[in-house]
Structures are given as structure tokens and as C-alpha cells.
Amino acid sequence: MIHFDFAASNLQVKSSAERGAAHTVPRAIPLAIYWIILMKRLHVLGGPGSGKTALAKIICELSGLPHIELDHMAYADSDFFRPRCREDRLAAVKTYSSKEAWVAEGVYFSWIGRSLKYADRIYHLTIDQVERQRNIDAKLSLRFPERDERHARHLAMLSLSNSEYDALYKNRIEGFLKPVRDKLIIVHSMEDALKEFGTLRAN
């Protein structure tokens, strides 16, 4: 269930799935409900800690679209040290991308070409590296509160990936996205992405 507070300067979205946690998003977001009727397949990508999952969850809660977490397809139990083979990843992407509606999100690019091809809109979150690292630290602290060896391994891996992401985007990902640039939206924050729904509706 979603609760809206239209009286506030910003829209308060409270998700029952988040056990009462409130997300503050721009007031323009109700327009997304109408826009989603036409745009039913969305792909969100960006570096580690850029807010992909948070944005996808809000969109899915507002629209009712199914949430596709690519981490589950890339790794067994989302454990970054248990990767699935490329064939399994491609098969999983083929399955969901053939469906009528979805919101897929993940850092990946080399094996999600079919998802980008069939997406109605693609968002690339270009969050500052320092902010991404803060988000990584916070997320892993929640996932591994005991800060054991698993926490240390995942932190080291994600921190390295984060430090390399901007160069990777410039050298490889940007070119990979050229065939779909007509439906690609570059945003600098989750709030910017949500505002974009209102802009599309106004146009």
C-alpha cells in the first residue's frame, strides 16, 4: 500500500513493504502514474551505490510494475563471489525482457543488451563517486551488521568497482549505449529521475 501526503512541499511516499519507511520525492511524481500507462518497460543503470534499487522500488510501488533486480541474475543469492555463467544471465534477461511490463535495475551492461533494446525508457544515474561510496558503506552495514569477513570482502569488491566505474563508463559503457540514446535519460540524482516523469507528462 502507498500513502500520499499532498499537503507537504514534497510528496511523502510511504510503502508498507518498507515497514512504514517514508521516501520523500517531488510533488510531480503523481503524473508518473499516468505516464507509466504508456511506458511499461524501464531500465535503470548506474554505478555501485548510485541509487538504482531505491529508484526502481519507488517506481514499482507507484506504478505496480514488477521489479527486476539484475544482481539476482548475475550472482547466486546476490553473493558477488558466486557468479552465474553468462548463458544463464542471458537466458534470464530474455525471459523478463519479453514480458509486457517491468522495471529492471543493475550496474551491468555487457549482457543486458536485450533489456535495453526492449525498454521504453532507460535511466542512467550519474551520481558522484564519493556519494556512491557512502551509499555502499551504508547498504553493506545493513546487510552485514556484524561486519564479518563477508562484509569486508563485499566492501572491497564494491569499492574497487566504484572507483573504476567512471572510467569504465567513458571507455566502454557510453559507446554501448549509443544505439539506444534516443530513449536514454541521464540524471544526476534519484530526485531528478522522478521529476522527469512530470516533464514527460507535461509534454
Rank of each mutant, 00 (worst) to 15 (best):
A91P: 08
L116W: 03
D88C: 09
A104F: 02
H124L: 09
D88W: 11
R121E: 03
I112Y: 07
R89K: 12
P83V: 14
A119T: 10
Y123S: 12
S98Y: 06
W111P: 04
Y123F: 14
W111E: 01
V103Q: 07
S97A: 11
S110G: 05
I112F: 10
Y108S: 03
L125Q: 11
V103P: 12
H124Y: 07
A91I: 10
A119P: 15
L125V: 13
T126G: 11
A119C: 13
C85S: 06
S98W: 00
Q129Y: 10
E100M: 09
Y123D: 08
R121M: 13
L116Q: 03
D88M: 15
S98V: 01
K99F: 06
E100G: 12
G113I: 03
I112G: 07
Y96S: 01
Y123N: 14
R84D: 05
L90K: 14
Y118S: 13
D128R: 06
S97Y: 05
T95G: 07
R121A: 08
R121L: 14
G106M: 02
I112D: 02
R89L: 15
K94R: 15
I122H: 10
E105N: 13
Y118N: 14
E87C: 00
L90V: 12
D88E: 14
T126V: 15
I112H: 09
T126K: 14
I127H: 10
R89T: 12
D128P: 09
P83N: 06
T126D: 12
Q129K: 15
D88G: 13
V93E: 05
Y118W: 03
Y123A: 11
K99D: 03
